[in-house]
Write a protein that binds this DNA or RNA. Structure first.
Length: 182
DNA sequence: CTTACGATTCCCT
DNA sequence: GGGAATCGTAAGC
Protein backbone atom coordinates (compact mmCIF):
# COMPACT_ATOMS: atom_id res chain seq x y z
CA UNK A 1 0.00 0.00 0.00
CA UNK A 2 1.11 3.52 -0.69
CA UNK A 3 4.17 2.42 -2.64
CA UNK A 4 3.57 5.35 -4.98
CA UNK A 5 1.86 7.74 -2.61
CA UNK A 6 -0.14 10.68 -3.89
CA UNK A 7 0.62 14.19 -2.76
CA UNK A 8 -0.14 14.62 0.87
CA UNK A 9 -3.28 16.70 0.37
CA UNK A 10 -4.79 13.98 -1.83
CA UNK A 11 -3.63 11.41 0.71
CA UNK A 12 -5.38 13.27 3.51
CA UNK A 13 -8.65 13.18 1.55
CA UNK A 14 -8.08 9.58 0.51
CA UNK A 15 -7.71 8.43 4.09
CA UNK A 16 -11.26 9.58 4.93
CA UNK A 17 -13.31 6.44 5.34
CA UNK A 18 -10.25 4.22 5.82
CA UNK A 19 -10.31 1.64 8.58
CA UNK A 20 -7.69 2.00 11.28
CA UNK A 21 -7.07 -0.55 14.02
CA UNK A 22 -4.44 -0.78 16.71
CA UNK A 23 -4.25 -3.99 18.73
CA UNK A 24 -7.90 -4.75 18.11
CA UNK A 25 -9.34 -1.28 18.66
CA UNK A 26 -10.26 1.25 16.03
CA UNK A 27 -12.78 2.45 13.50
CA UNK A 28 -13.23 4.61 10.43
CA UNK A 29 -11.17 7.74 9.86
CA UNK A 30 -13.45 10.77 9.67
CA UNK A 31 -11.07 13.73 9.99
CA UNK A 32 -7.53 14.40 8.77
CA UNK A 33 -5.01 17.17 8.15
CA UNK A 34 -2.22 17.32 5.56
CA UNK A 35 1.30 18.45 6.44
CA UNK A 36 3.61 18.96 3.49
CA UNK A 37 7.39 18.98 3.15
CA UNK A 38 7.62 22.67 2.29
CA UNK A 39 5.15 23.71 4.95
CA UNK A 40 6.05 26.00 7.86
CA UNK A 41 3.47 24.25 10.03
CA UNK A 42 5.00 20.82 9.43
CA UNK A 43 7.46 19.15 11.78
CA UNK A 44 9.46 18.27 8.67
CA UNK A 45 9.91 21.90 7.62
CA UNK A 46 13.44 22.22 9.00
CA UNK A 47 14.57 18.78 7.91
CA UNK A 48 15.06 15.50 9.74
CA UNK A 49 15.52 15.46 13.53
CA UNK A 50 15.38 12.61 16.05
CA UNK A 51 11.73 13.31 16.73
CA UNK A 52 10.49 13.53 13.16
CA UNK A 53 12.65 10.87 11.53
CA UNK A 54 9.64 8.67 10.77
CA UNK A 55 8.34 11.46 8.52
CA UNK A 56 11.33 10.87 6.28
CA UNK A 57 10.98 7.09 6.36
CA UNK A 58 8.79 4.80 4.28
CA UNK A 59 5.28 5.80 3.25
CA UNK A 60 2.47 4.03 5.03
CA UNK A 61 4.25 4.00 8.35
CA UNK A 62 3.13 5.78 11.51
CA UNK A 63 4.64 9.00 12.79
CA UNK A 64 3.74 9.45 16.45
CA UNK A 65 4.90 12.31 18.62
CA UNK A 66 4.11 13.83 21.99
CA UNK A 67 2.40 17.18 21.96
CA UNK A 68 2.17 19.77 24.72
CA UNK A 69 3.98 17.41 27.04
CA UNK A 70 0.83 15.36 27.49
CA UNK A 71 -0.81 13.86 24.47
CA UNK A 72 0.26 11.73 21.55
CA UNK A 73 -0.69 12.40 17.93
CA UNK A 74 -0.85 9.83 15.14
CA UNK A 75 0.13 10.53 11.53
CA UNK A 76 0.32 8.42 8.39
CA UNK A 77 3.53 9.10 6.49
CA UNK A 78 3.27 9.93 2.78
CA UNK A 79 6.18 10.87 0.58
CA UNK A 80 9.38 11.92 2.40
CA UNK A 81 8.65 14.79 4.76
CA UNK A 82 4.88 14.50 4.31
CA UNK A 83 2.35 13.22 6.80
CA UNK A 84 -1.39 13.15 7.47
CA UNK A 85 -2.52 13.85 11.02
CA UNK A 86 -5.45 11.65 12.02
CA UNK A 87 -7.73 13.97 14.00
CA UNK A 88 -10.79 11.78 14.57
CA UNK A 89 -12.17 8.32 13.92
CA UNK A 90 -15.60 6.81 14.26
CA UNK A 91 -14.90 4.08 16.80
CA UNK A 92 -16.61 0.73 16.14
CA UNK A 93 -14.14 -1.97 17.18
CA UNK A 94 -12.73 -2.74 20.61
CA UNK A 95 -15.04 -0.22 22.20
CA UNK A 96 -14.66 -1.74 25.65
CA UNK A 97 -10.87 -1.44 25.64
CA UNK A 98 -11.08 2.12 24.36
CA UNK A 99 -13.59 3.13 27.01
CA UNK A 100 -11.37 1.56 29.66
CA UNK A 101 -8.53 3.80 28.53
CA UNK A 102 -10.82 6.83 28.34
CA UNK A 103 -13.53 6.36 30.96
CA UNK A 104 -15.23 9.68 30.30
CA UNK A 105 -15.69 12.14 27.48
CA UNK A 106 -15.45 11.71 23.73
CA UNK A 107 -13.63 8.53 22.73
CA UNK A 108 -11.91 9.44 19.49
CA UNK A 109 -12.84 13.05 18.58
CA UNK A 110 -9.47 14.77 18.56
CA UNK A 111 -5.92 13.63 17.91
CA UNK A 112 -4.92 13.27 21.56
CA UNK A 113 -8.15 11.54 22.45
CA UNK A 114 -7.95 8.97 19.70
CA UNK A 115 -4.31 8.24 20.47
CA UNK A 116 -5.26 7.56 24.06
CA UNK A 117 -8.32 5.49 23.14
CA UNK A 118 -6.30 3.35 20.75
CA UNK A 119 -3.62 2.82 23.38
CA UNK A 120 -0.89 4.17 21.14
CA UNK A 121 2.59 4.48 22.62
CA UNK A 122 5.63 6.47 21.64
CA UNK A 123 7.15 3.06 20.95
CA UNK A 124 4.73 2.68 18.02
CA UNK A 125 6.45 5.58 16.25
CA UNK A 126 7.75 4.45 12.87
CA UNK A 127 5.73 1.22 12.79
CA UNK A 128 4.46 -0.01 9.44
CA UNK A 129 0.74 -0.30 8.98
CA UNK A 130 -0.26 -3.66 7.57
CA UNK A 131 0.54 -6.00 10.44
CA UNK A 132 -2.27 -7.89 12.11
CA UNK A 133 -2.30 -5.68 15.18
CA UNK A 134 -1.66 -2.43 13.33
CA UNK A 135 -3.86 -2.05 10.27
CA UNK A 136 -4.85 0.66 7.85
CA UNK A 137 -7.29 -0.29 5.09
CA UNK A 138 -8.25 2.20 2.42
CA UNK A 139 -11.97 2.56 1.66
CA UNK A 140 -13.57 0.51 -1.12
CA UNK A 141 -15.43 3.47 -2.48
CA UNK A 142 -14.75 7.19 -2.29
CA UNK A 143 -16.42 8.97 0.59
CA UNK A 144 -19.45 11.20 0.22
CA UNK A 145 -19.34 14.93 0.78
CA UNK A 146 -16.07 16.17 2.27
CA UNK A 147 -15.75 19.21 4.51
CA UNK A 148 -12.69 21.43 4.06
CA UNK A 149 -11.22 24.00 6.39
CA UNK A 150 -8.04 25.47 7.86
CA UNK A 151 -5.89 23.30 10.08
CA UNK A 152 -6.40 23.46 13.83
CA UNK A 153 -4.00 24.74 16.42
CA UNK A 154 -1.18 25.95 14.19
CA UNK A 155 0.30 29.40 13.94
CA UNK A 156 2.21 29.35 10.66
CA UNK A 157 0.56 28.72 7.30
CA UNK A 158 -2.76 28.83 9.09
CA UNK A 159 -4.57 29.80 5.90
CA UNK A 160 -3.97 26.55 4.00
CA UNK A 161 -7.31 24.69 3.78
CA UNK A 162 -5.81 21.29 4.46
CA UNK A 163 -8.18 19.94 7.09
CA UNK A 164 -10.72 17.42 5.80
CA UNK A 165 -13.74 15.76 7.36
CA UNK A 166 -16.65 13.59 6.38
CA UNK A 167 -19.86 15.57 6.11
CA UNK A 168 -22.80 14.54 8.23
CA UNK A 169 -20.95 12.39 10.72
CA UNK A 170 -20.83 12.79 14.46
CA UNK A 171 -17.50 12.79 16.26
CA UNK A 172 -15.48 15.47 14.52
CA UNK A 173 -12.97 17.15 16.80
CA UNK A 174 -14.43 20.57 16.06
CA UNK A 175 -16.98 21.98 13.63
CA UNK A 176 -15.86 23.07 10.19
CA UNK A 177 -16.39 26.66 9.13
CA UNK A 178 -19.82 27.27 7.71
CA UNK A 179 -19.59 27.54 3.92
CA UNK A 180 -20.51 30.95 2.54
CA UNK A 181 -24.20 31.28 1.95
CA UNK A 182 -25.49 32.39 -1.45
C1' DC B 1 -22.89 28.55 23.55
C1' DT B 2 -17.75 30.60 23.78
C1' DT B 3 -13.27 31.73 25.56
C1' DA B 4 -9.31 31.10 28.81
C1' DC B 5 -5.91 28.66 31.18
C1' DG B 6 -2.93 25.17 33.39
C1' DA B 7 -0.80 20.61 32.96
C1' DT B 8 3.69 18.47 31.47
C1' DT B 9 7.41 16.41 28.16
C1' DC B 10 10.85 16.85 24.97
C1' DC B 11 13.03 18.80 21.05
C1' DC B 12 15.22 22.66 19.09
C1' DT B 13 17.33 27.41 19.26
C1' DG C 1 14.82 28.22 28.13
C1' DG C 2 10.98 28.67 24.85
C1' DG C 3 7.24 26.75 22.86
C1' DA C 4 4.33 23.22 20.87
C1' DA C 5 -0.40 19.78 15.05
C1' DT C 6 -4.17 19.28 22.83
C1' DC C 7 -7.47 18.29 26.55
C1' DG C 8 -10.40 19.09 30.39
C1' DT C 9 -12.37 22.26 33.34
C1' DA C 10 -14.15 26.64 34.73
C1' DA C 11 -16.19 30.87 34.07
C1' DG C 12 -18.58 34.32 31.35
C1' DC C 13 -22.10 35.68 27.97
Amino acid sequence: MLSDPPDVVALARGLLGARLTVRGAGGLIIETEAYARDDPASHSYRGPTPRNRAMFGPAGHAYIYRIYGLHLCLNVVGRPGEAVLIRAIWPDTGLEAMRARRPTGALCAGPGRLAQALGLQLGDDGRAFGEADFTLTLPDQPPGAVLVGPRIGIRLAADRPWRFGLAGVEGLSRPFPTPPRV
